[in-house]
Simulated scan of single mutants.
Amino acid sequence: MWKKRILCLVLVLCSILVLSSCQKKETFMTLDQQQQLQQQQQQTASQSSDAQNLFGETALPQQNTIDDFDSGDYDPSQEEGGDEEFLETLSNIVDVQTPAPTMKSEYAGATPVLVDPIDKPTPTPLPPLTFNYEKYEASALHLTFEGPAGWVKDDSMPDTYILTNPTAGVDYAAQLSIQLVPVDKARNKNELIKEVKSRLDEIGGTCLKYERSQTAGRKFMNVDGVYANYKATTLDGAKIAGRMIISCVNKTLYILHVSYPQGYTSVYVDNVYDKFRHTVKIIDTTAAAATKTN
């Protein structure tokens, strides 16, 4: 009886030892497999890194601060997204200085149209102009003044003196005319405004296109005058512009008109129109004739 009990106890102990041995063996196998797995992962990562460098690509350096971008090693082309994304971002930029117009709901989401595209062709610059001056005498008008040298004069009319540029600039020969018109009484500012508008609109009526500015005041012949600018397209297609100023002295209207090719407004105003205003003088033709006779 005791022998059977001892035998059973021995068998139980042996079973325990066998199970314990198997568990330890299984634990050791698991650790080995984990180590092998880690080694395989490292090898795979190394192979993957080598594969990326086959075409000369260089891995990005670690960026610790923004200042590293200026070190010369940073290659922005390695970032995700290309020029297409950058250009699309630019196309969506809105000038913050210009408030966006209110859009009706039926137009929401519509593609905006550029009113003044950036690729608008640059106009061809006009050739520069230079002026030399000489003294002109309009004896029938009792006036002397300085104007561009070499211009062709026309004093065939008793009340008008005209100078014309013999060389057409661009598509039109510039012209200066001074006209004297006797009136029954002195003209005030409002009457001078009407006179300027009426005369310029009469010129515009002979043109294909015409646009006149508002009037303004300025001294002319040492009194208050009124002037206005205009631009037009003539019947033969020439694009012209000009300025007219009128004043009234001793019941006489002095009407100065300077016309020129469009694009040269500041040139002719500064060098022809203003030159006349600053140099014109009324002369006593009777005294001058007497001096010549003596």
Rank of each mutant, 00 (worst) to 15 (best):
L176C: 03
L163T: 01
E146I: 09
C207W: 07
A168K: 01
G169K: 12
I162K: 06
K194N: 15
K185G: 06
Q175P: 02
N190S: 14
A149M: 08
E202G: 11
S177F: 04
N190C: 09
L163V: 01
V181W: 04
T144E: 11
G204N: 10
E146G: 06
A174K: 00
T167L: 03
D154V: 01
L208I: 14
Y172L: 01
I203D: 05
N165Y: 00
A168L: 01
D154R: 05
D155M: 08
P166N: 01
K189N: 10
N190I: 08
A149H: 05
S213W: 03
D184M: 10
G169S: 12
A186P: 07
R212G: 08
E191T: 05
D184H: 09
D154E: 03
P148H: 03
S177T: 07
R212E: 07
A186N: 14
D155K: 09
E191F: 04
D154Q: 04
T167E: 06
V152P: 10
Q179K: 12
R212M: 14
V183E: 09
Q175R: 06
D201R: 10
P166L: 02
L180T: 10
Q214V: 15
P148S: 02
N190D: 15
A174W: 00
A174V: 00
P158A: 11
P148A: 03
N165T: 01
K153L: 12
Y210M: 11
D159G: 05
A186T: 14
E191V: 05
L200D: 00
Y172D: 04
V196H: 06
W151S: 00
T144I: 10
D201S: 11
D155V: 08
D201V: 07
L176T: 03
R187L: 15
I193H: 07
Q175G: 04
V170R: 03
T206R: 14
C207E: 10
E146H: 10
Y161W: 04
E195A: 15
L176Y: 02
P158K: 08
K185T: 11
L180H: 05
S213H: 06
D155P: 10
Q214R: 10
N165D: 08
K189P: 05
S213K: 09
G147D: 08
W151D: 02
E195H: 13
V196K: 02
G169D: 12
K197Q: 15
E202R: 12
V183A: 09
R187F: 15
A168D: 03
K194Q: 15
C207T: 11
D171S: 09
N165R: 00
K153N: 14
A173E: 01
A149E: 13
T206A: 14
Y161D: 09
T164N: 06
N165G: 00
L176N: 00
Y210L: 09
E211A: 15
E191C: 02
A186C: 05
A186Y: 12
S213A: 05
A168M: 06
E211F: 15
N190M: 12
T215N: 13
L200G: 04
N190Q: 15
G169E: 13
N165Q: 00
S156I: 05
T164R: 03
T206V: 09
P166Q: 01
T206M: 13
